[in-house]
Design a protein around this nucleic acid. Structure first.
Lengths: 252, 252
DNA sequence: GTCAACCCTTTGTCCTGACATATTGACGTC
DNA sequence: GACGTCAATATGTCAGGACAAAGGGTTGAC
């Protein structure tokens, strides 16, 4: 049945049919772990879908769905008539709908946030346009300075429509804006980002401990909720010696 | 059956079952067109999967697969128990496995390329590491300067293993590196990118018409083929006033 | 010995059917 | 009138089967 390098998950994979976690997801998780741990090496082929499904007592569509999850992540590649094989193990987490705070926390670092200013301001043209409001409408404005250790990392400026959340009663130095929005029931599903670069302004430079005109990495992001409503617009500037955007692209 | 805003594609959607194009893809294309043209506006709900499937004479799994394509693109959002609705129409094409040349061509602009240097060089540490080679191994090195109109836009430096393609016989000023690799049978499926910023070096600055130390947007990319083999590593620098990376994120 | 035709393997697509679960709105009770 | 319950609705998950198409290897003819 198998010819060259083929891995049979066999009894190492366990399924819990009483768990609320979908079967395809359970399989995908265990496959991902096996790949990340090096148990299945890059270049290796895995067994074909039908054999895997039979092995695990699943239907082929469910097995396919499990594999699809990892194909979407860029860990597996399918070739018709040939098989499915591991592309590479170490996937740097692709860009996701999380904040820098989440990024750094996950990396085991200790981020610190200093709120520079928070309050209501009249929306300028670009803010109004991105948030689907009229120029002059009041919006929340939030300016923060982010540190890693003792080093200033980023200046972040967010704008949020008043009816989305209330920022007055929140301690944004400890909670994190995105976490607060999530607990407020705001689900962000889609976001558009624009990543660029420019020279630092005088104020930014002072905050970040750089010189005026020194290069900064910039990111603008507009996030939308379930209903397609713009719920957040942010303009951020990062010190390029401390931060970069990493992403994994998958051709589909 | 429908309550508020619901769109029934009905007879406007046509299917060609004799076409080699998969049915789910045909449906997805027509839905995408209807959304992009504004025929179905952001916020509107579309009919439920079962009704749509019945309407088009398809099974529900096929209909689901069609919708899934657009969900992955960030154009549609599903909510269990509620329905599926349009998030927003104008999706800026997410970052894909294409080159800057493709980007600009698609935008209707006329890019021009000047090959600064092409030849074999010994791989330095980072190049060898990214391309899974040993330090000192020969690799293709390709340096190009990209223009939009008469303005220099980017300095691009690519490294390619010798056994992947032959760059000697190619006119890389007209063809484009990625196009050449594709026609050579190299299929790039996964790539890892790192986007950052830094000040321009003296040489770069002169090429790009900027001053030494002025901010540049940088991108490093390693591309892998079907078999997980690293086939290209590139270090590029862009003028930030002329170029930025735009991408659409979808939470899944 | 070279090259074309054929066959086998594996994924791609599509179908029918079923049950689970989240959400909403309507109904009924207190 | 407020609140909890229940039913309707729509997506989420899973099963099992069938045929198509592509890739790779083998076989056979020339």
């Amino acid at each position: 049945m198998s010819r060259y390098i083929v891995r049979m998950p066999g009894p190492r994979f366990t399924l819990d049919r009483s768990s609320p976690v979908p079967l395809y997801f359970q399989v995908a998780e265990q496959f991902e772990h096996a790949i990340l741990s090096g148990e299945i090496a890059p270049g290796e082929r895995i067994d074909n879908e039908i054999a895997l499904a039979k092995d695990l007592g699943l239907s082929r569509p469910t097995m396919r769905q499990a594999i699809q999850v990892l194909v979407d992540k860029g860990m597996l590649v399918r070739k018709r008539g040939v098989g499915t094989q591991v592309v590479h193990g170490k996937i740097r987490r692709s860009v996701e709908l999380t904040s820098l705070f989440d990024d750094l926390s996950a990396a085991g670092q200790k981020p610190r946030t200093e709120v520079l200013a928070v309050g209501k301001v009249a929306a300028e043209e670009d803010v109004a346009h991105e948030l689907q409001l009229s120029i002059g409408d009041d919006v929340w404005s939030l300016e923060r300075l982010r540190f890693v250790g003792k080093q200033p990392l980023a200046v972040m400026h967010n704008f949020i429509p008043l009816d989305v959340v209330d920022l007055d009663a929140v301690d944004l130095e400890t909670v994190g804006l995105y976490a607060h929005m999530r607990t407020s029931g705001i689900l962000m599903r889609v976001a558009r980002q624009r990543i660029g670069a420019r020279g630092a302004g005088a104020e930014e430079a002072a905050l970040l401990g750089e010189k005026k005109g020194s290069p900064l990495l910039t990111m603008q992001r507009t996030a939308y909720d379930n209903a397609g409503r713009a719920v957040e617009y942010g303009r951020h500037a990062y010190r390029p010696d401390l931060y970069a955007f990493e992403l994994t692209l998958v051709d589909r």
